[in-house]
């Protein structure tokens, strides 16, 4: 018999190392043609931090995305940004890059204010131009200002370091402020269970995550979907067989991560509840989409068949055995 069910699960997830300082830093260099180099130690491991940092710098500087180049994770060139972990890079390194860009921009505005005869607080930058707010015709370009400063013997370099606001946890009670900001999410999984075999087929997953502000919506969706794949494997198929500490299946033939055929349709939903201390309201999104996957699938299975496996992975065999015992 094939039975269907739906399960729900939720998460909240803090950005950064728990209750510990974990700063990031960045430099921004502006060139006379109005382009910019960012230097930041953040390691892009595929999640897209270099793209996000480039977007943040371009937005803050008011120059086109294509004019910004990111150099990342080269200790001979880039300042430290901490490890790519704990969902921290968009929030922490993103803030460092934004603040470094702001530092550079303030140097520009100080000069531009003289050129445009306006207070720096009246200035804005967009698409490579610096202009007086409400008077877009009173403008100059980023490149011209950089060039002018250069002729005066000044190179425009912005720099910044950012550390999330935390309070270390008390050893005896665990009380404190573990993280500066949080992301939140909810997931519903829909499954079909073959009750004769215990085989679970995940049909659909609907997942929403609060990105604060999605710096790059396509990338946010990619993080949600990728996290779901890792969670699905964790739940249903991935198992290391240990024999007195030795991994007996150190290969992809017997350690089974999901293939394209194992993954369900995914409906990713981005929620944007601005984070006041995030760069442009953003918080991190990379890690936690895999938090509720197994839980929502297990709840869906329980909804379908009335009993649950309490031991992962929930292989067909484990579920079959629970079903045979008449549930729990």
């Amino acid at each position: 018999m094939k039975l269907r069910g739906k399960g729900i699960a939720c998460f909240f997830y803090g950005m950064g190392n728990t209750g510990k300082p974990n700063p990031a830093s960045a430099y921004v260099e502006l060139m006379q043609d109005g382009s910019a180099n960012i230097f930041c130690g953040v390691a892009d491991i595929g999640q897209g931090s270099s793209t996000v940092m480039t977007q943040i710098a371009a937005q803050e500087l008011g120059i086109p995305f294509e004019m910004v180049t990111m150099t990342s994770a080269d200790t001979g060139v880039t300042p430290e940004a901490g490890v790519t972990s704990a969902c921290r890079q968009t929030f922490i390194s993103g803030n460092a890059v934004r603040l470094a860009a702001k530092d550079a921009k303030e140097q520009l505005f100080a000069e531009a204010a003289k050129i445009l005869s306006a207070g720096t607080e009246k200035l804005a930058a967009q698409n490579g131009y610096i202009y007086v707010e409400n008077y877009p015709e009173r403008k100059t370009t980023v490149g011209e200002v950089v060039a002018k400063l250069y002729k005066a013997g000044k190179v425009v370099i912005g720099r910044a370091s950012f550390n999330p606001p935390i309070v270390p946890l008390d050893d005896e009670t665990g009380q404190g402020v573990p993280y500066g900001v949080y992301t939140y999410g909810t997931m519903v999984s829909e499954v079909e269970v073959d009750t004769e075999t215990g085989q679970v087929n995940v049909l659909k997953i609907t997942a929403a995550q609060d990105a604060g502000k999605a710096i790059n919506p396509l990338n946010v969706e990619g993080q949600i979907e990728g996290g779901i794949a890792i969670g699905l494997g964790f739940c249903l198929s991935e198992e290391i067989f240990l024999e007195k500490g030795l991994i007996k299946n150190p290969n992809f033939n017997e350690y089974l991560l999901p293939t394209a055929l194992d993954m369900p349709d995914i409906d990713p939903i981005i929620v944007e509840c601005p984070e006041p201390i995030g760069p442009f309201g953003a918080n991190g999104v990379g890690e936690p989409s895999n938090v509720p996957v197994a839980a929502s699938i297990l709840n869906a299975i329980a909804d379908a068949v009335g009993c649950r496996v309490k031991e992962l992975p929930c292989t067909a065999e484990r579920l079959f055995n629970v079903l045979q015992q008449g549930g729990n």
Partner: peptide, 12 residues
């Protein structure tokens, strides 16, 4: 065929 994964898996 019954297997733990829909491709690239030895049969149960």
């Amino acid at each position: 065929r019954h297997a733990k994964r829909k491709a690239l898996a030895l049969p149960i």
